[in-house]
Design a protein around this nucleic acid. Structure first.
Lengths: 180, 180
DNA sequence: GGTAAGTGCTACATTGAAGTGACAGTTACT
DNA sequence: AGTAACTGTCACTTCAATGTAGCACTTACC
């Protein structure tokens, strides 16, 4: 693919992610206009709206997979892994702010998302076992609170770097659910 | 208005709220079907889709206003007011789960929402002043975290009553951001 | 029981977005 | 410089959802 085409593709994907996060019903015409390309150009890369969405969600899920891998949730000390994970996801949230939960259509992406959730849940379980989190907190509560905190930090603290925002999230999370 | 008509109206509003929360693009036909009435009946009460949405958002914002009033955020002891407020909002979230932020069209509702946000922000400031919350936490962080926790508890802890879910939210919130 | 209010149903016009085709013009790469 | 890749534009078709009209029918309420 030609270099300018790559740039256009990149623009459509990131702009699309941003606009779809703000309004899940954003039209292809609107996304294309915002990305600075013609509506027709989008249809040359993607056969349908669904395919464009799938590509965007795929970009996000892949970025998350990379972040999870980098955090080494299974091996690294829990406190270290937690911070690395949070920092990574905040970066992902800022580049690909779409909500993955909306992707009900694509089987593959849903499966990869489920696997990631299991991975993080297992990590939280390990964290509880090692005393980082209190044992009397429902697993579902910890499991859903962490993504929300990361989501919040990603957009509510725009002046902070990923690492600084991660500090805030980890601090709140551990004070809120952590052991003494 | 006749009693059966009132029931239908109620059904359309609550069902609409539930469906629009799950999918903001839900069609009037889908909402009507789910509520057990004909699409045409909806159009007899509401001149347009926008009016239906406005009615739903209005129901939510009014319920929130009532909860805020009941919590007596200005006068009651901060710890008491916080719990009453959280419990009330969780009830509202469960009945009217739509996201108020999406309502950009209606000027009135946006203004009322802004006033409510100011009210709660002022309460959080008072809480900080009285030592319930740590002073080194950014106001924006506390201000956005609390609604997220309530939102989370409303749907992630369905087996808990409003009061029990509020316990969880307040505990997490105060441990996370509270003073010693 | 009678009446007015309310509903369901079929049909229709309108609008906006999705998706496609053809063609001329531009731009990156060799 | 020449070619292939890429893009923008105009012009369609299709489709789903919005919004409207009229009529037969049911049901709450006096």
């Amino acid at each position: 693919m030609r270099a300018d085409a790559v740039r256009n593709l990149e623009a459509v994907l990131t702009t699309g992610a941003r606009m779809l996060a703000a309004d899940p019903g954003a039209s292809i015409a609107a996304i294309a206009a915002e990305a600075g390309v013609d509506r027709r150009t989008v249809y040359r890369r993607f056969a349908s709206r669904e395919e464009l969405l799938a590509a965007i969600y795929e970009a996000r899920v892949e970025a998350i997979e990379r972040a999870v891998e980098d955090a080494r949730l299974r091996e690294a000390p829990v406190a270290v892994a937690l911070h690395r994970y949070v920092e990574g996801i905040i970066g992902v949230n800022r580049k690909w702010p779409v909500e993955l939960a909306r992707m009900k259509a694509d089987e593959t992406i849903r499966d990869r998302r489920d696997a990631l959730i299991r991975e993080v849940d297992a990590f939280l379980e390990r964290s509880t076992g090692e005393g980082l989190l209190r044992a009397d907190v429902p697993a579902a509560w910890a499991s859903s609170l962490l993504p929300q905190l990361m989501h919040l930090a990603s957009q509510q603290l725009p002046e902070l770097t990923d690492a600084q925002a991660a500090d805030m999230v980890v601090d709140t999370f551990l004070r809120g659910l952590g052991g003494r």
